[in-house]
Amino acid sequence: MIPAKDILHGHDARWLMNCAGDAMLVVGADGGILLANPAAVRLFGYSLAEFSGLLVEDLIPPRFRDSHGEKRADFAHHPEFRRMGSGLELYCLRKDGGEFATDVSISPFEDGHVLVTVYDISDRKQLEEEQKRMIHELEAVNEELRNFAYVVSHDLKAPLRAIGSLADWIAADQQERLDADGQEHLRLLIQRVRRMDALIDGVLRYSRIGRVHEAVSAIDLNELARDVIDSLAPPPDIVVSVAPDLPTVRAEKTCIYQVLQNLLSNAIRYLDKPAGRIDIACVELADCWQLSVADNGPGIAPRHFERIFQLFQTLHPRDRVESTGVGLSIVKKIVEQSGGRVWLESELGQGSTFYFSVPKISLNL
């Protein structure tokens, strides 16, 4: 082995190499290892004396050696600093035959000598593989859930339609034969069939969010708000006002329509005042539009602020206020997948204001 003082001139250079935490090797033009640092001894399992009889190919698994010889010859003709491993699967071989994943950097210095730094990335590689496995499993679970939603909806819709049709027939043709209790039971049956139908539709809409996209387009929110109000047809005792200066945003129209529709329908459903009021407004911020839907309804206690956005959660008995508990979950999922956020402010007895943000630069909403 060529003496270290002749390979790396200067005490500081040799001291830095010996103190380095990563394995470092000095390799000659013929591929022979001329010098190794203590980190290389720990990583590869060879002693300093044993390194002197090795070629750099001896540290590479046999299946990679032929191609490595060609790469070493190419480097000899075009010596320059290179970082190997980006986008490649590189492995080194220990004395005991064990392999480990690695990144390698090579730096030429003089007389055809090359400084090779070897980075053991086994832990990082294992973490990446674990992440890939978890992502694959998550995708498989999500696909199963999507298929489950469709299968369940199909299997439930058919008997539900039959029950609904039968209940409607009884209500139309047999109602006179029913006493007051029978008529009330029939009313509850029809109401719950319709609720189940709406619940199934809500679950399907929730499962589609993020999977089915439409083209992003410019949307006049003033026009969209009017369309939503017309579709909901609020009762005469509820006045819905829309600020005249709502912006035009770029988003998926169906998604932002669903957000406004769910927030407005919730406000209409729960209003408990003789004169109901709902106000739609917008504030421009630096990076987003902040829209709000405010009402003068019963209000919501702060302890329920998180709960109401969870799937199937409602604050009132379903026989008193008809609700599936899906609408606000859909709002939250749509808004957050767009890079926005949704929240509320409320005071019991005074009403609630729901806010949601629409990023000014948005690929989807």
Rank of each mutant, 00 (worst) to 15 (best):
M24A: 13
F51E: 02
E129G: 08
F44N: 04
E129T: 03
Y46L: 04
R303V: 12
R318V: 15
G45K: 03
K125H: 10
A218G: 05
T353D: 01
A158M: 07
G325T: 11
D22V: 05
F100H: 05
D12P: 00
L34F: 03
R65P: 01
L55Q: 12
E80P: 00
V26Q: 01
Y91H: 11
E347F: 01
S105Y: 02
N147R: 15
W343E: 11
Y206N: 14
I60Y: 00
V104S: 08
I278S: 07
G349Y: 01
L315S: 11
D319E: 15
N37A: 09
L188V: 09
C282Q: 11
S107I: 04
H113F: 14
P359C: 08
V239K: 10
L54P: 07
D120V: 05
A281S: 15
K253E: 15
M84L: 15
R205K: 14
A218W: 01
I278N: 04
A171G: 01
Q310P: 00
T248K: 07
Y206H: 13
K253C: 11
A251Y: 10
A167V: 12
H113Q: 07
A233C: 11
A39H: 08
R211T: 12
Q174M: 15
H78S: 11
A275L: 09
V216H: 01
W289A: 03
G10Y: 01
A140D: 12
F312A: 13
I121P: 07
G297Y: 08
C288T: 06
V141R: 11
R72F: 13
S107H: 10
R94W: 04
E284R: 08
Q174H: 15
L145M: 14
L127E: 12
V151A: 12
I7Q: 00
L344S: 03
R82E: 09
S338L: 04
D319T: 08
A243T: 02
K157C: 01
R194S: 12
R341F: 12
A225I: 03
N262R: 10
P298L: 05
S52F: 00
I209C: 06
L189Q: 08
T102M: 09
K132Q: 13
G98Q: 14
A29C: 06
E184R: 15
L35E: 09
R211G: 13
N222G: 10
Y91A: 14
D220Q: 02
A29P: 10
R211M: 06
L311P: 00
M17K: 02
A36P: 12
R14G: 10
P235Q: 06
L166A: 13
R277D: 07
L285H: 13
I256W: 11
M84I: 10
A167C: 08
Y46R: 02
F44W: 10
V335D: 05
F354S: 01
G297D: 10
Q310D: 09
L232F: 02
A76P: 00
W343F: 14
R318L: 13
P247S: 06
D201P: 01
S67G: 13
S153C: 12
D6A: 05
A198T: 05
F305R: 04
